[in-house]
Amino acid sequence: MAVQGIVVENVSRVFGGLKAVDGVSLTLARGETVAIVGPNGAGKSTLVQLISGVDRADSGSIHVDGVRTDRLSSDRIARLGVGRSFQTSRVFPALTVWDSVLVGVQPGLIERPSGRLIDPVTESLGALLGLGFWRRRVKAQEAAAEAALKLFGDRLWPRRDQPALSLSYANRRRLEIARLLAAEPRYLLLDEPSAGMNPTETEELTHLILDLRRTHPQTGILVIEHKLSMVRRIADRVVVLNQGRVLIEDKPDHALDHPEVVEAYLGKPRTGASFQDAHHG
């Protein structure tokens, strides 16, 4: 029986002389929410790049549900059920909101249950001739896309025929997350989902993640986040990174109030009060 979850073991990534990620190990089980925090340059985003296959680790190993993924391409990893968002939302600007979400479900359309892809000829015939079996697949995927958009209430669904570039900053973030959710991933990697959001929008996002945890109890969520008040509310565990290394891994309140963590963020320990949002994005 293969080990479930995302297992990162002793992973390093060097850029020139800089060890961006230096021997990091961590796990993400299905159903749990883990937050990665740390000062700028701690290697948080690089770690997400490595897990999602957008960048390659120099050493160490990464497994997703028992499948070794550190040498796989990012599309293969995504099809294993790992969805990721980007620090700056990437939403296919000229595509409509609706098309943008449908891109998210496309891999499910061309993937057989075995995990192999349908060959391009069959795909072409299905798409061109609108054959029955193909149309049923498309319908199912469209239903998933519609449900994902409607998760955001009237933020996205009424705007589905507008190009993504016309959306507000916060709505682009929502669209990106909707695209991920439409694919029904087993793991979600969110790279600073609240960056650029005002307090109200951050609150809304916090509720969305809490709702997700309730509606998708089997989804593992890894979230990079600077807004520690949000981290305290959503995360089961916190991993603090500093200079590419895991500084501490613990429950949110323990981890975030740990003197070494405070020092890593602020440079010197503060007595008494725990600190709140280190970074307002």
Binding site: V54, P93, A94, V138, A183
Partner: peptide, 24 residues
Amino acid sequence: SPIGRVWRAIREDRLAAQASGLPV
């Protein structure tokens, strides 16, 4: 068709298309 939609997605953002699971 959906294939054309994928083509446009690749044009708009190749990295995001691949990270979405598409064999670009």
